[in-house]
């Protein structure tokens, strides 16, 4: 996401909170995008957008905490969960897309498509360019997953 924004002439910063990622544990990562250089290193407390890769997190974590007015929660889910009522949400079944397109339930690149669709902050083309660069021979499948998510994301 950060790199795609950079391609479009923005400054960017992206960082994980839990550096020791391990499979299955909830982790948080942040991205800032700005027209001017980004200096602060504090975590993001008032996000414009929150991307949730796993719908079960919605039950255990207040994913919309600090969400700025007009902000959007972009969620990998089959349907809108009850406890996000009143929030603007964008929904896509990224797990299904990832399994069908990539063969594995890893939704990171898929959700980039949903993020592009819901926010318009970066174009799908820029996302595809970055995936191309980062994923080598696996790029095509991942770009297809992002494209499908872009098409299938429903914003409510």
């Amino acid at each position: 996401m950060a790199e795609a924004a950079f391609l479009e002439g923005n400054y960017c910063q992206a960082f994980p909170f839990f550096g020791a990622e391990r499979r299955g544990a909830p982790v948080v990562a942040f991205t800032r995008i700005d027209k001017r250089p980004i200096r602060t290193h504090e975590q993001v407390y008032r996000p414009n957008y929150v991307v949730v890769l796993d719908q079960t997190l919605v039950e255990s974590v207040d994913v919309a905490a600090g969400l700025s007015p007009g902000g959007i929660v972009i969620l990998n889910s089959k349907k809108a969960p009850e406890n996000l009522k009143g929030k603007k949400i964008a929904i896509v079944d990224a797990t299904k897309i990832a399994i069908e397109t990539l063969g594995v339930p890893i939704t990171n690149t898929t959700m980039l498509g949903a993020l592009a669709k819901a926010t318009g902050v970066v174009s799908l083309e820029s996302i595809a360019k970055v995936i191309e660069k980062r994923f080598g021979k696996l790029a095509e499948k991942n770009i297809n997953a992002a494209k499908r998510a872009f098409e299938e994301t429903v914003i409510s």
């Binding site: 910063q13 992206a14 960082f15 994980p16 550096g19 290193h41």
Partner: peptide, 12 residues
């Protein structure tokens, strides 16, 4: 340089 805050942060 600060671990994670710089070591794992992507920037231009």
């Amino acid at each position: 340089y600060d671990g994670y805050i710089l070591s794992h942060t992507l920037e231009p």
